[in-house]
Design a protein around this nucleic acid. Structure first.
Length: 419
DNA sequence: TCTGGGGTCCTAGGACCC
DNA sequence: TCTGGGGTCCTAGGACCC
């Protein structure tokens, strides 16, 4: 049994380079929605000291000083390249779990030598580069957490060139010493500080702890991490990417909103998006939360209001969620507040096949209608059919000052070759 | 001049009930 | 005079990930 984790190197920044070879040897930064924070920095940019996850305006000068190329998020492009990358991985190993837009786990039901795993990883890297032009790293390990660690090592530990294998216990210990504890999957900044205080600094230090004690002192999550680092599988194949227990759609506005109707439009939009995600995982929600807030950075005080709503029966009907959102609006809207962000969360989700239907269900929750809505939007584009309540005069468009073309998903943006 | 992402899960602690 | 359990639900906030 062997797991592999394949992930794209600085996915968004690399994606920007695919159809724009002129910028391949330049530092590239990709900004979050509304051009707020840096969310991807290519390796060249990182070497120049440009950091991820900082507000762009704070490093704008620094970026300009090194002639960095700046791009707004182009999710249409990233999503399309991602699916091509996943297709290539699936050709190599059909037992695949997509973990995020730039990562997937592969599971192999056999054992092989270290050399053969290395060869396979190398072949996979070449294949993805050849067919999609995305650079990927590949890590192999007997548990998902070890595969993650191997993937990290493949890019960061001296002596590896994009592929690493953590199989035998002895070899595993050698590499885990070279991985910082905060680079272990599931260990962030805060836990890192607490571990450091206990004298734990490397991934190996963590692996050497008693799992039971760590579980008591920290959490089950930490306990599972320790066990996985020792080769004990705690994240079952179905748990690597289980169905979500909650689903959110939220976004900050390009410009502040004070108008009640605009807030209603935005909440309606998020209700639509969240419901679509919910139906995609074949789930139903028992409750929902609606919220709107001003910015914590605004001078005149932080305002946030949330409203929870329980449904009589679990639902995935956009109409019911929108109606609930409109009810909630009266509670969360406050005149005079400059709203910065709002959103909808669907909570307490259950699988649609595990629902006890009641006598009135057919009239209450029209699954067929929603299925039809999704089918049309999948076939003809995602905004083909919308609820009228999203409005026709939306004023909350995202800021996207540095957007690249949607090379692969829009006819007018298809790259042209000049002869 | 102004600008600060989006999503998910876990846990501690409060409120309430018997 | 002092003492006082156990369970459930809800929520805010912590923590992590990409």
């Amino acid at each position: 049994m062997m797991y592999a984790l394949v992930d794209a190197v600085s996915m968004y920044a690399s994606a920007e380079k695919v159809f724009d070879p002129k910028i391949r040897d330049k530092p590239v930064l990709v900004l979050s929605n509304n051009d707020g924070c840096v969310i991807a920095a290519c390796p060249i940019a990182k070497r120049l000291g440009l950091k991820n996850f900082v507000p762009y305006f704070q490093i704008e000068k620094q970026a300009k000083a090194v002639n960095a190329v700046i791009r707004s998020s182009n999710y249409a492009l990233y999503a399309d390249l991602s699916s091509r990358m996943m297709d290539v991985c699936a050709q190599v190993c059909p037992d695949l779990h997509i973990y995020s837009i730039d990562e997937c786990f592969l599971k192999f039901d056999f054992n092989d030598s270290l050399e053969n795993w290395m060869r396979l990883g190398d072949a996979l890297r070449r294949k993805v580069w050849k067919e999609v032009r995305l650079p990927v790293g590949v890590g192999f390990g007997p548990t998902p957490t070890l595969a993650k660690a191997a993937n990290h090592a493949s890019k960061k530990v001296e002596g590896f060139n994009g592929v690493a294998v953590l199989d035998s216990a002895r070899y595993r210990r050698q590499i885990l010493t070279k991985i910082a504890i905060t680079d272990v999957w599931g260990v962030g900044k805060r836990l890192g500080v607490r571990f450091n205080k206990l004298g734990l600094h490397s991934a190996l230090d963590l692996a050497n702890q008693c799992p039971f004690k760590m579980g008591k002192q920290f959490s089950v999550v930490v306990e599972n991490t320790v066990r996985e680092l020792n080769g004990e599988i705690r994240l079952g194949w179905d748990d690597v990417r289980p169905d979500k227990k909650e689903l959110f759609s939220s976004r900050s506005f390009g410009e502040r909103i004070a108008d009640k109707a605009q807030l209603r439009h935005a909440l309606t939009m998020h209700a639509q998006i969240a419901c679509k995600k919910l139906r995609h995982q074949k789930g139903r929600a028992n409750s929902a939360v609606f919220f709107a807030a001003s910015s914590p950075h605004d001078a005149n005080g932080y305002y946030k209001e949330t409203l929870f709503k329980h449904f009589a029966r679990p639902t995935a009907d956009t109409r019911l969620i929108i109606a609930a959102a409109h009810d909630a609006l009266h509670t969360i809207y406050k005149p005079g507040v400059n709203f910065y962000k709002c959103g909808v969360g669907l909570l307490d989700l259950v699988d649609e096949t595990h629902i006890q239907e009641d006598l009135f269900s057919s009239s209450m929750d029209n699954t067929k209608l929603m299925g039809c809505l999704d089918a049309i939007n999948t076939k003809f584009g995602r905004s083909t059919l919308q609820f009228a309540a999203v409005g026709t005069d939306q004023k909350f468009h995202m800021k996207q000052a540095y957007l690249s073309p949607r090379y692969t998903t829009r006819w007018s943006d298809v790259p042209r070759i000049k002869c």
